[in-house]
Nucleic acid binder design. Structure first.
Lengths: 174, 174
DNA sequence: ACTAACTACTTGAACCGTCAACTATTCCCG
DNA sequence: CGGGAATAGTTGACGGTTCAAGTAGTTAGT
């Protein structure tokens, strides 16, 4: 072990373990709540939200993938599932014959409307109700730092050159 | 929408979206690095770490599940996979005939030893190198608050009455 | 010492995400 | 304009997670 590795010290180990535990448990809690209250997975919920916030309730597949930090493959599978459920429908893109539009259906919007209140309540209960304004500000600052590093990495990796940074930033500015 | 729902305001939405994006991307980045550098998934890595830190390199299945905030089912499947790979082996528990011990093999320890340096490097690169000491302290404080709420929830939910809180706290105290 | 309740763990089906390979279209540039 | 490179999206195999159900051993009340 006398090599050049910068091992974690006790304090760092504690923080890292805490990060793993807290983020994992919070994700799982949110997913479980959402699933139980409305039968929607978080991934599906996000897609419906993004579509509902777009004029015309429709978006290009690849834009939608970037907006949800999702691979194109993941999105394609997810939209297929949502199509089976009748909440989203695919449409050919008029301007690019390679393209597809994901379109939110009325049923999909209804499902989202039904799920949203419980979900927001869940987010409050497990996050916002627990932290002081100062802690929230600190959290936001930390997230900015991390995203400044992670978004470029994600963009550099993407299936093909993706606009994930622009899409993510756009979401954060709304 | 004039109902009693406490919707998120702009600032809250930004924080929530930031939390989703940053934690998702960081998880994915860590998993991808680990997978690429050593063929291990994060879940498998965690199990090997927990075993390697126990005297005798062996632990009861349920303890191991609690220590990794994992359901018993998840752990059972994971250990089966690790057994196929030759990194872990099951043993009957001498004191309780219902019980099973997961035992780390020499091959498993070797796999862990090979993976650890790159993984630690990855954790530093994506987290510790980016944050100031003050930001790290803030992060730790926030995690404490969240865990104080999430661990009891996880314990109350567990397959059966689990010691997830004790196991988690024990990890954090090392 | 019987039996009901509880605990330990496993199993299989369904679903989700990843990865690599594939088709179809458009872009770029000599 | 022609052909290779880049882009848009899909697919199928594979591994991981969940959930509900099942087996088996243990504890506790009477």
């Amino acid at each position: 072990m006398g090599d050049g590795v910068r091992w974690l010290d006790t304090e760092e180990r504690r923080i890292w373990l805490g990060w793993i535990m807290s983020t994992r448990l919070l994700w799982e809690e949110m997913e479980r709540d959402l699933q139980r209250d409305s039968g929607l997975s978080f991934g599906h919920y996000e897609i419906l939200v993004m579509l509902s916030e777009t004029p015309g309730w429709r978006r290009r597949m690849s834009e939608l993938a970037d907006a949800t930090q999702s691979s194109r493959s993941r999105l394609s599978h997810a939209v297929s599932r949502l199509e089976e459920l009748g909440w989203v429908r695919r449409e050919a893109c008029p301007s690019d014959r390679r393209g597809q539009l994901a379109v939110l259906t009325d049923e999909g919007f209804a499902a989202l409307e039904a799920a949203a209140p419980m979900h927001v309540e869940s987010v409050r209960r497990h996050l916002f109700d627990l932290l002081s304004p100062e802690q929230l500000a600190n959290l936001q600052e930390i997230q900015e730092v991390l995203l400044d590093e992670l978004l470029p990495l994600a963009a550099a990796r993407g299936d093909t050159r993706s606009k994930i940074m622009e899409e993510a930033r756009a979401q954060l500015e709304r």
